[in-house]
Design a protein around this nucleic acid. Structure first.
Lengths: 259, 259
DNA sequence: CTAATAGTGTCTCTCAGACAGTATATC
DNA sequence: GATATACTGTCTGAGAGACACTATTAG
């Protein structure tokens, strides 16, 4: 847009970029938050962990590329779970091979899908995120700027659990309140009061709904089974916002048309 | 990432993309939310409104390109205000000239900076967003997919005002509580109770702090002047999360280590 | 029986929202 | 004086958090 406005339609300096999508795929297993990672078999960062991802094809949408990579690398067929754009990373030196802009996507999946071997992702595996982001040397095992992307994805997931019903994306089609609580406990790294948690989620309209079935085989009293409620005003595909660190909670209800 | 793992370091099919940054620059003037728009003087969408923006230069960071465009197109020197990445748009057909991926940034600025004529942005002007997104024909006046980008930016701003102290980014260095309230009223399109609002913001630590001065020249009793508080745990540059439509508000406080 | 989990009831304390009342400016 | 805005105080209802209590399973 720095062209003299008399020139018809030729374009000015357009740097050529390669565009990739990288996936932060998170799940909860064994009460810990895990990320899906592959082991690089090629030149830069050979042998290091990396986020699954790949180049965007010529006729492909960005989210389409993300869905394709998710299927290829993890065998996720995109039915349950959740997928949203996370952020875009394009620092000049982030890829030693050239100017690469990466659009990162965040995927939340139930534990079920074993990292099935795709065409080339035979090395895909679930890794606990606290082993990767623990601060002490955990970073450095991830290629490129993928540690930052993973950290941003985990932060996004933690934030969205506060203000959305997204936690059910980590759960199988039918789940108990206790299993849902374990999702929060794993993602936030805290222990919740089971009684208050039950009262809260059961009393929140549009969150979960009973299937009528009961759990079997667990310890203690059997629990009622639930599914995620039909999303009425759920987030369709909105881009995103971070709640920042210090919440102020100036909610619109605080107003009312001053009647 | 879909290369046979024996090939050394040559890369597979890399589509070439042009990468641009587009800016959603918002301000509050005359009690209405405005966006900074330019009138296109070139071929596609000639004469239509468009978001300010341009191509990312070869040695430039993404946010660096956004800061440069913000300065060039609106004369904003990047001191007050707020700038964050919004989302990335890369549908195959979004630009008729070829495959262009646009990284959108959201900027919030005080009203002061008049859209100064930059090199080519002599057509830059503030336009009320409700005239652009009103649903009835408002869309269509914006080039490319910029109506969607603008809508996403406005939605992001509205969300972040709920959970962050970001409203002060719309205010000059010194402002009254009433001016801060008008920011919320303009962005949310509601009327707030001035008394409860005052008590809320004055009682929120880390939000605003008194300068000692008093406002002059307004109607009614003079008001104390405030500045935004030193950001202690403020959001540095985190990517973002959307609060979705139906808030659940399962805040971490709901837990406590069950002691 | 004990241990473990599920679920309900109840209490308290905080806070959002409503709104009365006072203070200080312009006209 | 009237009017407008700034600011403080008080009441109430809703809800988060703490926690007692009952219910139902496995071992």
């Amino acid at each position: 847009m720095s062209t003299p406005s008399s020139v018809p339609s030729s374009e000015p300096l357009r740097t050529e970029f390669a565009v990739t999508v990288d996936l932060v795929v998170l799940t909860v297993r064994a009460d810990r938050l895990h990320a899906l990672l592959i082991t690089r078999g090629l030149a830069p960062f050979h042998g290091a962990f990396a986020l699954p991802g790949g180049f965007v094809l010529p006729t492909e949408d960005l989210v389409g590329a993300a869905v394709r990579e998710l299927r290829e690398e993890s065998g996720v067929v995109r039915s349950a779970g959740h997928l949203e754009q996370l952020a875009t990373y394009g620092a000049p030196g982030r890829d030693p091979r050239g100017r690469v802009v990466s659009v990162a996507y965040l995927a939340l999946e139930p534990d079920l899908p074993v990292p099935r071997a795709g065409s080339d992702a035979s090395t895909a595996q679930w890794v606990p995120v606290d082993e990767l982001l623990g601060g002490l040397g955990g970073t450095g095992r991830l290629a490129f700027d993928h540690a930052q992307i993973l950290a941003d994805g985990v932060e996004r997931a933690r934030s969205k659990l506060e203000y959305t019903q997204l936690a059910t994306a980590f759960c199988p089609p039918e789940f108990t309140v206790g299993e849902l609580r374990q999702v929060y406990e794993a993602v936030w790294g805290v222990r919740l009061d089971p009684r208050n948690f039950h009262r809260k989620v059961a009393g929140t309209p549009g969150f979960i709904e009973a299937t009528g079935g009961m759990s079997e085989g667990g310890r203690g009293r059997p629990a009622a089974l639930f599914r995620r409620a039909r999303s009425e005003a759920g987030a369709p595909g909105a881009p995103g916002t971070l709640a920042g660190a210090g919440s102020v909670a100036l909610n619109p209800p605080m107003m009312r048309p001053v009647g």
